[in-house]
């Protein structure tokens, strides 16, 4: 974050962003406590596209 956007973010901004990332990481474990199998697909479906013939 600092390398890519550091020129526009103050030290306070970077501290707040770091804190938000830490906070998310503290909760993200919950995602991995739900048991999933290899067959459990994400809840979206990609559709192949074929436009009109003309």
């Amino acid at each position: 974050m600092r390398l890519r956007y550091g020129d526009r973010l103050s030290d306070d901004d970077l501290r707040a962003i770091t804190q938000a990332i830490h906070s998310r990481l503290q909760n993200v474990d919950q995602l991995y406590k739900v048991a999933l199998t290899n067959a459990d697909e994400p809840a979206f479906v990609f559709a192949a596209y074929r436009g009109t013939e003309r």
Binding site: L31, Y32, V34, L36, E41, P42, A43, F44
Partner: peptide, 13 residues
């Protein structure tokens, strides 16, 4: 993490 959330979401539904 995003994909994990979307997989858990299907189970949740």
């Amino acid at each position: 993490d995003y994909l994990r959330a979307m997989r858990v979401r299907r189970l949740m539904a």
